[in-house]
């Protein structure tokens, strides 16, 4: 069976696309899946840093597309997780170096060899975003429980629908359960009510994400991290397992309510 292409996107910057891509990829690799990540954020590459592979880059995505190297040469293998590979973005070029059809061609080449191709999309709705979603089989939209991030997620979901790529699946990142409880933060219910798409995962705010990002070790490798557990649940859901949303949270009762709003969206 050929692999699936998953694009992680958001519209707004800084909501956790790259962190989500790195961690979903690492969690899948932990489950013995063959995974390749593509950093589509050309000119502002980050995924290599988050995965701790920055110092091993020789060739990048643009080199592959412009034929300066073979695809294999640009793929960096993660030594901690043998079935995880990264195709980094070029740092010295911009989005126009790649076209949507280049991405489709590249993914078609990768699909027979891998179980999963994960694409980290740049922020925005321009060329970079179009490149990132061109080859996608599944689109994951990451948002934060903030009005501005939700507004941008709504726009992105609309664009995905217009491209007939949907339905998108939603990850709500950086939830602070105690703030939600006090009514100071949008609850997952509020976000889902507006966006009306399928929920893929809820990630609590967790400081271990910051330290692990700085160290270049995905947080899913840390067995104790709450965010790490949430990302492992997300990868399991993508693999087709049924993981109840209630299991994410132990300290508060917030996520126990989520099960009932898990719904199919769209119209």
């Amino acid at each position: 069976m050929p692999g699936k292409v998953v694009t992680v996107t958001s519209g707004k910057g800084g909501v956790g696309k790259t962190t989500a891509t790195a961690n979903i990829a690492a969690a899948m690799a932990l489950k013995n899946q063959k995974v390749v990540c593509i950093d589509a954020d050309i000119g502002l590459r980050n995924l290599d840093v988050v995965l701790g592979l920055e110092n091993r880059i020789v060739y990048d995505l643009v080199d592959v597309i412009e034929g300066r190297c073979r695809l294999r040469q640009a793929m960096i293998r993660d030594k901690r997780l043998p079935e995880l590979y990264l195709i980094p973005a070029a740092q010295t070029r911009d989005k126009s170096a790649v076209s949507p059809s280049d991405m489709v061609r590249l993914c078609n080449e990768l699909k027979p060899e891998f179980d999963w191709v994960l694409i980290d999309s740049p922020a925005g709705i321009e060329r970079g975003f179009r490149n990132a979603i061109a080859a996608a089989d599944i689109i994951v939209v990451v948002t934060n429980p903030e009005v501005s991030a939700v507004r941008d997620a709504d726009r992105i979901i609309g664009l995905i629908e217009a491209e007939e790529k949907g339905p998108a699946q939603l990850i709500i990142n950086r939830i602070k359960p105690d703030m939600v409880k006090k009514g100071d933060m949008l609850s997952p219910d509020d976000v889902l009510e507006l966006l009306a798409v399928e929920l893929l995962g809820l990630i609590p705010e967790d400081e271990t994400v910051i330290t692990s990002t700085n160290r270049g070790v995905p947080v899913v490798i840390d067995g104790k991290s709450r965010a790490g557990r949430a990302f492992r649940n997300i990868s399991q859901r993508l693999l087709g397992e049924r993981v109840p949303f209630a299991s994410i949270e132990e300290s508060g009762g917030l996520f126990n309510q989520i099960g009932r709003i898990f719904r199919k969206g769209g119209g």
Binding site: R151, D154, R155, G158, L159, E161, L194, G267
Partner: peptide
Amino acid sequence: KTLRSGFRIEFDGNVIVYGDVNPG
């Protein structure tokens, strides 16, 4: 369908939406 942020309708007539009209 639901009209999401960034969607704009200009129409010389009446408009009926079966769905939500989101902010934006």
